[in-house]
Amino acid sequence: MSTHSTSGSTTLDEVTGEPLGGANASTVPAAEHEGSGPLPPRRRRAGSVPRTRLTVALLGLVLPVLLLLVWHLLSTNGFYSPVQLPQPSAVLGAGWELLRSGDLWVHVGISTQRVVVGFMLGSALGLAVGALVGLSPWARILAGPTVGALRAVPSLAWVPLLLLWIGIGENSKVTLVAIGAFFPVYTTVSAALQHVDGQIVEAARSFGIRGVRLFTTVQLPAVLPAVISGLRLALAQAWLFLVAAELLGSSMGLGFLLTDSQNNGRTDRLLLAIVLLAVLGKLTDALIGVFERWTQHRWGSAPAT
């Protein structure tokens, strides 16, 4: 094999064979760049899948427009009565009517508030308990089965108890939403933390990193994709539980709008509430997308798992 240069004047270019700038900047040794060279950037799906944002957004609207057309046809050709299926324009009119009376903002506002507050509380608690159970074998042994059993209770079964304990006000609704948001985050986070690469954790520990710093430097970034998908599920659950809470007893909110419209035969408002729920659900989900991009920017692209 090669003989070591015997003088003390070895330059680093010889030693590491790496271009270090300056005169030798272009001498890249073949050995390191063959075979195990840098991976090429991931290629997009080939073929005719559209690329630009605008086209994608427009294509996403094709189906809703078709649905609207079918709806319009079914509601005008006598197949359904106006009580069963009002025309799209009637729904729009109902929205306008509520908007002018100011009721629309009350319903949308209070529902959004309940979801946001409940979701924040539930997912923060889910992250905390999930982290504890995922990281500490003791917590897992002691609390794991109990939390698992609580999760097995269909969450709506809590409603009578919540009404009994907290009353029919805001708190019981927010609590129910929080319960709905808690479990998806808890489950995904605690499971993901148990599968964090132990070798990386050990390496970080060997550099004196421990406790909260170990969590924020290694474990949390490692489970970030799981946390995000847990948050997505939690948000969907939060809206589900909101409607349940509002259906069961309230005087405001989109769930109330649903029951109230049903009782008064206002199918136009009923459909309006459903459309609003779809739009709000999609908007809040988009916020999680924003949060996801922020975390990726903060911690770099999500680790491949």
Partner: peptide
């Protein structure tokens, strides 16, 4: 093994 944090 290098044991680097893949996201850093």
């Amino acid at each position: 093994e290098p044991r680097l944090l893949p996201w850093r």
